[in-house]
Design a protein around this nucleic acid. Structure first.
Length: 251
DNA sequence: GTGTGCCCGAAGAACTTCCA
DNA sequence: TGGAAGTTCTTCGGGCACAC
């Protein structure tokens, strides 16, 4: 079935394509097109079920009104919730979102940046991984807008929306310490990502400030792609082996 | 293998036509 | 004559056909 184009609408309405374009883009008044003609064009477009060809629009305007959202794992509830909010806000502003997951693989992240930039996305929101620096720098050289989310890459001047990792851990630890807990465990994942490093650093710093000996710093590092049952078993052993009375989860 | 020209759909500047 | 209405032409990036 042939797709209805602006040209088809023009033929049926008895005008040229640009007149249709002006009307359908709300510029009829500006271009001094009569109300009667504008109404006729709108009616034909509606009757024919016309929908703009986004590829053609981006070809002409150089903008796709699509943003690439690259996160660690879109099935993760944390990123799914963030994605939902980002999508709602983007829709309000007339943008659509394409979601991708790196699965914590920087090569995959780099490939996704290449793929999406070739697809003419207007900008990127990325939870970056070490190893993606060059690709992000390339985006900056191409003047393609990039924003980091949840974490950042030291050495790159990119706008970032971040959690206050240190203060978050500090508040959590203060709460547990104020309740009288002394043997507080810290559960994290084996990642050298900046946010994980900052959270662990904050945990150790707070214990140090309280004069807790290093022997009583209890840290469990789970592998990134852990299975649920495995993690539960590891945490159970961690609690028993270290005789913990509280745990702070960093993720 | 390389160069050239055309095509696709839509936007918009510049232009022409019409009419009071 | 001048404003309103509508038209023409160029442009964009990439794929493709064709000539050399």
């Amino acid at each position: 079935m042939k797709r209805i184009s602006i040209k088809d609408i023009a033929t049926k309405a008895g005008v040229v394509p640009s007149t249709v374009s002006f009307v359908l883009n709300g510029k009829a008044k500006e271009m001094r097109i009569s109300d009667a003609m504008a109404e006729k064009i709108v009616a034909v477009a509606k009757a024919e079920g016309y929908a703009p060809n986004h590829i053609a629009v981006s070809l002409r305007t150089g903008r796709s009104r699509i943003l690439g959202l690259i996160v660690e794992d879109i099935s993760n509830p944390f990123f799914a919730a963030l994605a939902k909010n980002i999508e709602e806000k983007a829709n309000e502003l007339g943008y659509r979102i394409v979601y991708c997951s790196t699965k914590n693989d920087s090569q995959k992240g780099n490939d996704l940046i290449t793929l999406l930039s070739q697809s003419q996305v207007d900008g990127f929101i990325i939870t970056p991984l070490p190893g993606m620096e060059q690709q992000v720098a390339w985006l900056q050289r191409q003047e393609i807008p990039v924003t980091f989310m949840d974490r950042y890459l030291p050495g790159l001047d990119v706008s970032s929306v971040l959690l206050d990792n240190e203060n978050g851990v500090r508040l959590g630890m203060q709460h547990l310490l104020s309740k009288g807990y002394k043997r507080i465990g810290f559960v994290t994942v084996e990642l050298q990502q900046v946010q994980m490093v900052e959270r662990q650093k904050a945990y150790e710093q707070i214990l140090q400030e309280r004069g807790v000996a290093e022997d009583n710093h209890f840290i469990l590092r789970l592998p990134f792609n852990y299975q649920h049952d495995f993690a539960v078993d590891q945490i159970r052993r961690f609690i028993l082996d270290q005789q913990l009375d509280a745990i702070l989860f960093s993720t």
